[in-house]
């Protein structure tokens, strides 16, 4: 069904106009997914410091305990939790389970994500602080 130019088709899923919970959940799933892939690459790249010996790694660890990095960790946990919990939701829905409750499930996922992230962030700052 040719209609839109390629760039428009490529970004069609970003267009939230007229969409509801399900569309929003899908968009967030993709955005967190892309974010986590980028993180994975960075993470693996950073781990190379381990190969350079104790000094390089422990210096990095010290830096990673700065409040700025810890805040980034909070963001990471937010992304992971959403992606994981919504992943469970999408797997069930994808098998036709719980479709009538999909919007409520989405808000459940969001609340749980926010709650768990809040706890995790608190814990991170408590441990390192």
């Amino acid at each position: 069904m040719k209609e839109a130019p390629r760039w428009k088709r490529a970004t069609g899923w970003v267009d939230l106009r007229g969409r509801r919970e399900g569309g929003l959940a899908f968009l967030l799933m993709r955005l967190t997914g892309i974010g986590l892939v980028i993180y994975l690459f960075i993470h693996l790249y950073v781990l190379r410091l381990l190969a350079q010996g104790p000094e390089a790694w422990d210096a990095f660890i010290a830096m990673a305990k700065s409040p700025f990095f810890l805040a980034l960790d909070g963001l990471l946990i937010l992304g992971i939790l959403y992606h994981a919990l919504n992943g469970v939701r999408v797997t069930l829905l994808g098998l036709g389970i719980g479709v009538p409750h999909q919007a409520r499930l989405f808000w459940g996922v969001v609340s749980l994500t926010l709650l768990a992230t809040a706890i995790a962030v608190y814990a991170i700052f408590a441990i390192t602080g």
Binding site: W13, R19, R20, E21, G22, G23, A25, F26, M29, V90, L93, G94, G96, V99, Q102, A103
Partner: peptide
Amino acid sequence: HSAMECTAVCPSNVDPA
């Protein structure tokens, strides 16, 4: 991708999702 929008807009009880 289970965005569920089909079922949300369906006016005729089909529930494609």
